[in-house]
Design a protein around this nucleic acid. Structure first.
Length: 655
DNA sequence: GTCCCGTGTCATTCG
DNA sequence: TACGAATGACACGGG
C-alpha cells in the first residue's frame, strides 16, 4: 500500500508539473507534507551522524520520514533546520529556488508575450520589498546582488509581479471603481492612489510610503516624495484598469527563458546522478585518484579547503546541490563548499550504492597500508574497545577536542558523531577499518558501511595473530616492535579479560564482526560458558559505548539547536514588534487622511437649504457597490446598563 | 577538597 | 526470542 501510494504521489507530482505549465496551479503541499517528501527528507533530514545505519535509514525512510520514538522531534527539526541553513549559506543552491521556479512557470503559462518593461519595474521599490525578503534568508547582501544578477529569472525578477497579480490586482480595480464611479469628485487623484499604495504595500514599503502620507497632510505637497514607488504603483494601476494581460509587460522574456532553463538543468542534475559524475570527470582529473582523494578527504576531518577541492569533485557530482553550484557560475569554489558538504557528500555517496568504493577499494587499501604504524600506538579505553574518541592518547584520554584534531578521530570537526557511525565509515574505512577489512574479509567493509558498527581504532592493529576459521584468513603476525608496543600499552579491562580467558579475538573484532560471524565464532571455537559470556559482554559493552557517545552528541546538538531556535524566535519577535508599531503608525496616518478627505467632500456638498454639510453631523459611507453615501452621524446611544437600570426602576415602581 | 566535564557501563525500553 | 539502538542513571578519572 505504501508503495502504491508512493507511485501515486510521484504521478501526482508529474501531473502537477504539467498542469503548472499550462497555468493551472494545483496545491499538493498538504498531501506531500504529510506523506511524501523525499527531497526534503534527504536534504533536511536528521544528521547522518545520528543515523547508525545510514543506508538503511535512507532506504527505509524513503517512503516517509520516520522519527525514532526516542528521538525527540526537536532533534529532527533542528537538524533539518541546521542543514537547511548550511545549504542556504552556500548561496544560490537554496530550495526556495524551486518555489521561484514554480512562479516563473506560472508567469510563462499566463502569456508568452513580450515582457520588456519588467526590468524597470523589478528595480523599483516594489521589488525591493521582495529583495528584502530574500535578504532575510541570505547570509549577506553581497551574495544577494550577485544572486539577483546571475539568476535573472529568480524571484526578484519574476515573483514580484506575480505577487501583484494574486494579491494586488484583484483588489485594485475595486479601489479604482470607487474612485471612478464615485459621485463625489475628489479634487486630488493622487490621494486615493497613495491610499491604495498603503493598502497594498507591505509593511516595509509602508515605512517608506509613510513619509509621503505625512507629506500629504500638507495641502501644498500632496505628491509623495518617493517617485519610484509612485511610478511603480501607477504602472500597476494602469495595468489593472486596462487589461490584466498587460501584466506580462512586467516580466521579460529573458527572465522566463533563463529561469526555466535553469530550472530544467537543476532538475536534470538532481535526477541523473550519472550525469553528475560526468561533471566530475570533466574536471580533467583521473577519476580513481579523484575518488580516492575524495574518500580520504572525507575521512580526514581536518581537511583544508584547498585540498578538499579535488575531493569534492566526486562529492559535488553526487550532490544535488553540486549542479546548482555549477549553474550559478561557480560563485562558490569547491573549496568553500567542501567543509559544508562533507556530510551531505557522505550521504550521497552512500546512496550511490558504493560503486565508487568498489572501484577504488584496492587503491585505497594500498594507500592505507602506507600509514605510519606509530600513529597506532595510542590506545586508551576502559573497556579496551579503544574507540577513536579516545585515540588522543593516554595524556588526554577521551578528549573530544583531541579526537577532533586527529584524522582518525571519532568525531568529525562538525558533527559526524561517534566512530562507527555513518560518516567516518561510510566515506572511507579508516586505518582500523582498512586493517579490519584486510584481515577479516572484503565483504566486511560493506558490512561495516551498512551497519556502521566499526571501531576505527589503533588497537585494532595490535591484535594477536588470529585465525578466522569462517573465512580461512589468517592475520599476519605482528613484528617485534608491534609486540613491544603491545606489551607496553595499557590494556583495557575487557582486553585483559579476553587475554585472561584466552580469547583469540580482539575487542574490536568482537564488537565489529557481524552477528552471523559472531555466532559462528561462538559456535566454532568450543568456548567455555565463561568465555561465551565474556565475549557477549565485550560485544554488548562496545556497542553500548558507541551508542552512548552518539546519544551524548545528539543531546548536545539538541541543546545547541534549541539555543539557536531561541535566538531566532527572539529576532522574529523583535521584527514583529517593529512591524506592529509601523502598522499602527500607518493606520493612524491613513485615518487622518480619511478624515481630511471626508471634510473636504462634505464641504463641497450642500443640503436642502444650500448650506454645506456639517462634518460633525454627517459622514461618508462607502457601500459595497463602490458608491459613497452621505450618512448622518448617529448619536451615541444610552448605555444598555443605564437602560437596564431604568427598566428595573420602572418594574420596581410597578411592583 | 570540591566541582565540572567527559567517558564507560549498566539497566531498561523499544523496534 | 535475539539483537541492537537509544537513553537515563551512576561511577570514575582528570582538570
Amino acid at each position: 500500500m505504501q508503495k502504491a501510494k508512493k507511485y501515486f504521489t510521484e504521478g501526482l507530482i508529474q501531473l502537477t508539473i504539467l498542469l503548472s505549465l499550462i497555468g493551472v496551479r494545483v496545491d499538493i503541499d498538504s498531501y506531500l507534507s504529510g506523506y511524501y517528501t523525499p527531497l526534503i527528507e534527504i536534504n533536511l533530514g536528521p544528521s547522518s551522524a545520528y543515523t547508525q545505519t545510514p543506508f538503511h535509514s535512507l532506504r527505509d525512510t524513503l517512503d516517509g520520514y520516520s522519527v525514532h520514538p526516542k528521538c525527540p522531534e526537536l532533534d529532527y527539526f533542528f537538524a533539518s533546520r541546521r542543514l537547511l541553513d548550511e545549504v542556504r549559506t552556500l548561496g544560490s543552491p537554496r530550495f526556495p529556488t524551486q518555489l521561484d521556479a514554480w512562479l516563473v512557470h506560472q508567469v510563462a503559462s499566463t502569456d508568452q508575450a513580450d515582457c520588456g518593461p519588467s526590468t524597470n519595474n523589478t528595480t523599483s521599490s516594489g521589488s525591493q520589498s521582495s529583495g528584502d525578503d530574500d535578504r532575510e534568508h541570505l547570509p549577506d547582501g553581497g551574495q544577494e546582488v550577485s544572486h539577483t544578477t546571475s539568476e535573472p529569472g529568480h524571484s526578484t525578477a519574476s515573483c514580484e509581479p506575480l505577487e501583484v497579480e494574486e494579491g494586488g490586482f484583484r483588489s485594485t480595480p475595486y479601489f479604482l471603481t470607487q474612485a471612478v464611479e464615485n459621485d463625489v469628485k475628489i479634487k486630488e487623484e493622487e490621494e486615493p492612489a497613495l491610499l491604495t499604495q498603503l493598502a497594498h504595500s507591505s509593511t516595509l514599503e509602508q515605512e517608506s510610503l509613510l513619509d509621503g502620507v505625512t507629506a500629504l497632510s500638507d495641502p501644498a505637497s500632496h505628491h509623495p516624495p518617493t517617485i519610484d514607488i509612485d511610478q511603480h504603483w501607477s504602472n500597476l494601476l494602469s495595468l489593472s484598469v486596462t487589461d490584466l494581460d498587460d501584466l506580462d509587460s512586467l516580466v521579460t522574456d529573458t527572465d522566463i527563458t533563463s529561469a526555466i532553463s535553469q530550472d530544467v538543468s537543476l532538475h536534470d542534475a538532481m535526477v541523473t546522478t550519472a550525469g553528475a559524475f560526468g561533471v566530475a570527470s570533466e574536471r580533467g582529473e583521473p577519476r580513481p585518484v579523484t575518488q580516492q582523494r575524495a574518500l580520504l578527504r572525507l575521512e580526514s576531518t581536518g581537511s583544508s579547503p584547498s585540498d578538499a577541492s579535488p575531493g569534492m569533485a566526486l562529492g559535488l557530482a553526487a550532490l544535488p546541490f553540486a549542479s546548482v553550484c555549477n549553474l550559478t557560475g561557480n560563485e562558490l569554489s569547491h573549496s568553500e563548499l567542501g567543509g559544508c558538504l562533507d556530510e551531505a557528500v557522505f550521504d550521497q555517496i552512500n546512496q550511490l550504492g558504493l560503486e565508487g568504493l568498489d572501484t577504488i577499494n584496492s587503491q585505497l587499501m594500498g594507500c592505507l597500508e602506507n600509514l605510519a604504524p606509530q600513529a597506532l600506538e595510542d590506545l586508551e579505553s576502559d573497556s579496551g574497545l579503544s574507540l577513536e574518541s579516545s585515540s588522543g592518547g593516554p595524556v588526554s584520554p577521551g578528549s573530544s577536542e583531541m579526537s577532533s584534531s586527529s584524522s582518525s578521530s571519532s568525531y568529525c570537526e562538525d558533527e559526524c558523531g561517534a566512530t562507527g557511525y555513518s560518516s567516518d565509515v561510510d566515506s572511507v574505512p579508516s586505518k582500523g577499518i582498512a586493517d579490519y577489512t584486510t584481515a577479516w574479509s572484503p565483504i566486511d567493509l560493506s558490512e561495516s558501511v551498512w551497519h556502521d558498527h566499526s571501531y576505527s581504532s589503533p588497537a585494532f592493529f595490535n591484535q594477536p595473530p588470529v585465525t578466522f576459521p569462517h573465512k580461512g584468513i589468517k592475520e599476519e603476525p605482528l613484528s617485534e616492535d608491534d609486540d613491544t608496543m603491545l606489551e607496553d600499552r595499557d590494556l583495557s579491562r575487557d582486553e585483559l579479560r579476553a587475554r585472561a580467558m584466552c580469547i583469540p579475538f580482539s575487542v574490536l573484532q568482537i564488537v565489529n564482526m557481524p552477528v552471523e560471524e559472531f555466532l559462528e565464532v561462538l559456535d566454532g571455537h568450543d568456548f567455555s560458558p565463561d568465555q561465551v559470556t565474556l565475549l557477549r559482554d565485550i560485544r554488548r559493552r562496545g556497542k553500548n559505548k558507541l551508542a552512548a557517545q552518539n546519544c551524548r552528541k545528539r543531546k548536545l546538538d539538541a541543546i545547541t539547536g534549541l539555543q539557536e531556535e531561541v535566538e531566532r524566535l527572539q529576532a522574529q519577535r523583535n521584527r514583529l514588534l517593529r512591524e506592529k508599531q509601523l502598522t499602527a503608525k500607518t493606520m493612524g496616518a491613513v485615518g487622518q487622511q480619511i478624515k481630511q478627505l471626508t471634510r473636504d467632500v462634505l464641504a463641497r456638498l450642500r443640503d436642502d437649504l444650500g448650506q454645506p454639510l456639517n462634518p460633525e453631523r454627517f459622514t461618508l459611507q462607502c457601500g459595497a457597490n463602490g458608491r459613497v453615501v452621505v450618512q448622518p452621524l448617529r448619536r451615541p446611544a444610552v448605555s444598555t446598563s443605564t437602560g437596564n437600570k431604568t427598566d428595573k426602576r420602572k418594574k420596581d415602581k410597578k411592583q
